[in-house]
Design a protein around this nucleic acid. Structure first.
Lengths: 144, 144
DNA sequence: GAATTATTTAGATTATATCTAATATGACAT
DNA sequence: ATGTCATATTAGATATAATCTAAATAATTC
């Protein structure tokens, strides 16, 4: 997503495209690794324009309210954020605690029998509560 | 689960059954509403024996390490806890943010085609990211 | 360009969690 | 029973994450 597109999506949501706000949004678009507010603050301050801690928090709040960003549910103290570019959910592994992005399928409402094979494969992982790596048979896994 | 059973499960995990630790565990067994540490601290201090804040945190840490309790992944600042009585996962609604307990199915490893109807119904909700209430057709939902 | 509104800022404050070091308790060998 | 050792508890200090405050700055409108 290029600069102009980010600017547009901010303005479509009624947010002015300030340099600080743009920096937060752009960082989240580029790095979909669910950073904390502190990580985002650090990252945007490695280059101009600088931004204060309060502004970073304010902008994250505004972006979440506007629906462009969401707060990811994770264990641990610090909130983590995620640009909602392509719609997806999160899956947290029971064993290793990793947060994995999960494709979003627009399942037609009443069609219980119509889930595709690919979806079925993901369902298995979900009901085990293990991520793809941890769900491998014991032998092929590194001990942790 | 009665007092003796709780005592046993603590001791089986190598933890002494102290009054304070017992109180935390018993509270989590009774109230599976994913309370915060602060809520647990308050609750156990409404009756004897009293417990300090540090002890409550220590005991929660010990119980999590022992595998008797787990920390629930949620948005928001405060960690939330959950007794791992019956194995289950958590499902967080995209719309309302509620945390729902989700039954744990022991899906046999390679049988992609063998998920039951009940599981399929849950899969639909998961892939929508909405809880049972929020997944109802618009008309039958209260606006939030 | 004056008035209005939105944004940013440093620093103070609140909320949550952990650490420290002193004390208390329980297990158990003698 | 008593002393010893490991474990647990405690109040208070500290650390970390988030929010608030009030003043300054920038953009927008009239």
């Amino acid at each position: 997503m290029d600069a102009e597109a980010i600017k547009q999506s901010l303005e479509n949501s009624g947010l002015r495209c300030t340099p600080q706000r743009y920096a937060v949004m752009a960082f989240l678009m580029e790095h979909n690794r669910h950073p904390t507010a502190a990580e985002i603050f650090e990252a945007v301050n490695r280059v101009d324009p600088r931004s204060s801690r309060a502004t970073t928090y304010n902008n994250l709040r505004d972006l979440v309210q506007a629906g462009l960003v969401r707060e990811v549910a994770v264990e641990g103290r610090a909130a983590r954020f995620d640009a909602k570019g392509i719609r997806h959910h999160h899956f947290i592994c029971d064993r290793c605690g990793n947060v994995e992005d999960m494709e979003w399928y627009d399942v037609p409402r009443p069609a219980s029998g119509s889930l595709g094979k690919r979806i079925l494969r993901e369902c298995e992982l979900i009901f085990r509560g293990l991520c793809k790596k941890c769900a491998l048979p014991r032998a092929s896994r590194k001990l942790s």
